[in-house]
Design a protein around this nucleic acid. Structure first.
Lengths: 250, 250
DNA sequence: CCCGACAAAACACTCGATAATCCCGTTTCA
DNA sequence: TGAAACGGGATTATCGAGTGTTTTGTCGGG
């Protein structure tokens, strides 16, 4: 080993509390463990995550900048809410942007890119969407492979900020999808859609691939939108019941 | 006045120190008053902006999330540096993304959008690019009108996150442009380019407008790139001189 | 029964100080 | 001569207490 201690240590400074709690919060929001719209009280979180308030505020400021949380001046932070209108804009943007990145990727991708796409597609096909047959139970391996497949498709577009943007949109959309999957189950053949996109991409048919990808994202979006509507109705009922209970208790 | 105090107060809670210092820092970075790459020491900034360290760290965390600053674990924050490679990716992404948004805008824009574009273009044409004839002195009014023109072009694309993304890219690119303008002067006829874009947009020629816009952004990018090179050479010389001075002083 | 003023509690935000870590010039050893 | 250990000084990261704002709950009047 010719690397000195100074060189190896450069990168992995022990994670600071602020970033550690940032990562955990981020995941808890994306996975839906922290429901949309709820208050993020600094003291509570501080107790829950075992970190001081200063690091927590730092993490929250970061999340707010990313759009995963909302800051309200003098009134603290809340989890970004799951608004159908915002979601529609999100999906529309994804369709446009990912299709654009895919077209560019097809125009510029080399043989290595083709191989990566084909490999990612094969890996994805092997995995079951849900861990159980009857109802939906998220399969972490599938989620990972799914992410990898979509990333591989766009990887050759040679515009890092565009890629980063697509990834952020995907995470945000995935948050909605998580919420939706808690109450509904996608009936369509997602695997076939992925296969069709991969085929078009490898055929270098940019227009067809872009259109298919946009359609794929749109379908998922529509599915989530319906689930979201049901959720809203559900919550409305719950709120009514709770209100009734309060009245009854008096 | 029929509005109660409760209603009017809701929005404008007096700016918290954290956000106030965030805005100031942000501007100082974008305007180039804080040079790329320099360290952002919490204590110094705390003294300079007259705020505590906690709000400052919050602001810095936010800026880091936006990409205007870099956080290095256990080693504080630095201003994002002006790297030619990153800049190239930025420009490429802008060309792709703004052209996309413009095409969408043209496809969806109504009469009000047309009017807004035409008006913004006229306002821009009236203003001089530089306050002095011989050398470049930034004209705030022109900068504002320029921003407004480009925003008006994309306004009808009906994809809020896409618009927000374009705006962020523009700000980042403008930071580079500020640095470049400090040492060079654009020789081409920027006004004519704007006019051509507006004309194509109002003609509803999406392809031509998109191409012209991409070309416009690319030219500006090329200009900045050259200036950046000169800047690098300049800094190299300065560093050499400083080094020589140190040696001479011994 | 509803509405608005009022007081108390909860909470966000801020500050100053302390602990942990890094940086850099110096010394020590092979 | 060069590389590794070492310390003083600077800087980051963190904590706990204090201040001001918002929210909640209560009470009297419409």
């Amino acid at each position: 080993m010719s690397t000195t201690a100074a060189e190896t240590d450069r990168q992995p400074s022990p994670d600071t509390q602020a970033t550690a709690v940032y990562r955990r919060l981020r995941l808890d929001i994306l996975k839906g463990r922290l429901a949309p719209g709820i208050r993020l009280k600094v003291q509570d979180l501080s107790a829950a995550y075992g970190a001081g308030q200063a690091p927590l505020r730092e993490a929250l400021a970061q999340l707010a900048a990313e759009g995963l949380a909302r800051r309200i001046e003098q009134r603290g932070f809340r989890v970004a809410d799951a608004d159908p209108t915002e979601f529609a804009g999100l999906i529309r943007t994804r369709c446009l942007t990912e299709a654009l990145a895919l077209r560019e990727s097809i125009a510029r991708g080399d043989a290595a890119w083709e191989d990566a796409v084909a490999a990612a597609e094969r890996r994805l096909q092997r995995l079951p969407r849900s861990l159980e047959a009857g109802r939906f139970v998220a399969n972490p391996a599938w989620e990972t492979a799914h992410r990898a497949f979509h990333t591989a498709l766009l990887a050759a577009c040679d515009a890092p900020p565009l890629l980063a943007f697509c990834e952020r949109l995907r995470e945000e959309a995935d948050r909605y999808r998580m919420l939706a999957n808690a109450i509904a189950y996608p009936g369509r053949d997602v695997a076939a859609e992925h296969a069709a996109i991969a085929e078009a991409a490898l055929d270098r048919d940019a227009e067809r691939a872009g259109a298919l990808l946009a359609q794929h994202l749109g379908s998922t979006g529509e599915f989530v939108r319906l689930a979201l509507e049901r959720r809203a109705a559900h919550q409305g009922q719950q709120r009514k019941r709770r209100h009734a209970a309060v009245l009854a208790a008096e």
